[in-house]
Simulated assay, not measured.
Amino acid sequence: MLAGAVVLGIGAVSTLATWNDSEWVNGLFSTSSFEVEQNTAADIGDAAWVKEESNPGGALRFTADAAALTPGDAAYAPLALRTAAGSDAATVTLQGAVPAAGTTPGTELWAALDVRVTTSDAPFTCDADGITAGTEIASGKLASVAASTAPQSLAADSGSVQYYCFEIALPAELAGSEDVQGQTAQPAWEFQAVSLEA
C-alpha cells in the first residue's frame, strides 16, 4: 500500500511540469524624406541650391531689360529644380502666376505682360534664342496663364536636374499706350511638388 502511494505521488508531480516559451516581435517605422530645391543662378552650382517654400520665394535673375521694359522688349531668367539629398523622387507642376507676397501690381501692366516658360532635362541657354531649346509648358498673358498640364519628373536623391527658362515680354503693340508706363509687377510662381513612391 505504501509503494502504491509513492507511485501515485510521482505521477502527480509529473503533471505539474510544463515547458514555457515566448516569441517577441517589433516593428520600426520611419518616414521617408521629401524636399525639392531650387537654383536661380545662371551658372548652376552646388552652393546655390536653396529651399524657398513660401511666396515670394527665390528671386529669378532676369536680364537687365526687366528693370526698364519698353514695348517689344523681353527679359529672361533661368531656374533649375532637383530633389534634395536623401529625398524621394517627385513630380513638379508649374502653377499660374500670382502677385508676390506684399506687392500690388499695376493692373494695366499685369494684364499686358506676356509670359512663356520652357523646360528641359538638359542644360540650355536662357535667352531669346536658347528658350526654344526647351519644351514649352506655359505661354500667354501673365494674368491668365493657368497651371501647366505637363508635370516634370525629378529623380530621387538629387539624381536629376530639371532646367527652366522664363520669358517676360511687353508686347510691341503697346508702343502708343501710356497706360503701362511707370508701373511695376512682381509675379510669383509656385511649382507644386508631389513625392513618388520609392
Rank of each mutant, 00 (worst) to 15 (best):
A48G: 10
V115L: 14
K51D: 11
T118S: 10
K51I: 08
L109P: 10
G45I: 06
T118M: 01
P71W: 09
D21Q: 15
G57T: 04
V98P: 01
Y76K: 07
G45R: 02
V50C: 00
E108M: 04
N55W: 08
G140T: 02
V25M: 09
D21G: 14
S33F: 09
A48Y: 05
W24L: 12
T119K: 02
T132E: 10
A68Y: 12
T93R: 06
W110Y: 07
L79F: 05
C126D: 05
G134D: 13
F62W: 08
A59M: 09
A75E: 07
G58T: 15
E53Y: 06
D73V: 05
V36Q: 01
A48I: 00
A112L: 00
G130Q: 05
E52K: 09
T135Y: 03
T104P: 08
G45E: 09
T118Y: 02
T40C: 08
L113K: 00
G27V: 00
L60C: 11
A85W: 00
A59E: 14
A101G: 15
A85C: 00
T63F: 13
A97E: 00
D65F: 06
N55T: 10
D114S: 14
K141F: 03
A59W: 05
F124H: 07
T83N: 05
T91Q: 12
A68K: 11
F29A: 07
A68Q: 11
A48H: 08
A84D: 12
Q38C: 11
I131L: 14
V115W: 04
V115A: 05
A41Q: 10
L109W: 08
T70R: 14
G27E: 07
E53A: 13
A143Y: 02
R116T: 11
E136C: 13
A122V: 12
A111Y: 05
L28D: 14
S139L: 01
G102P: 15
D121G: 10
E37T: 03
V117C: 13
S139Y: 03
T125Q: 12
A74V: 04
T70W: 10
E53W: 02
Q38K: 01
D43L: 04
W49N: 00
D65A: 15
T107I: 09
F124Q: 06
N39Q: 00
G58P: 09
G102W: 10
D65M: 12
R82V: 02
A138D: 01
T40K: 01
A97I: 02
D43A: 10
E136G: 13
A80I: 04
P56Q: 01
D121N: 14
V98E: 09
D129F: 13
L113N: 00
A138F: 05
A66W: 04
I137Y: 09
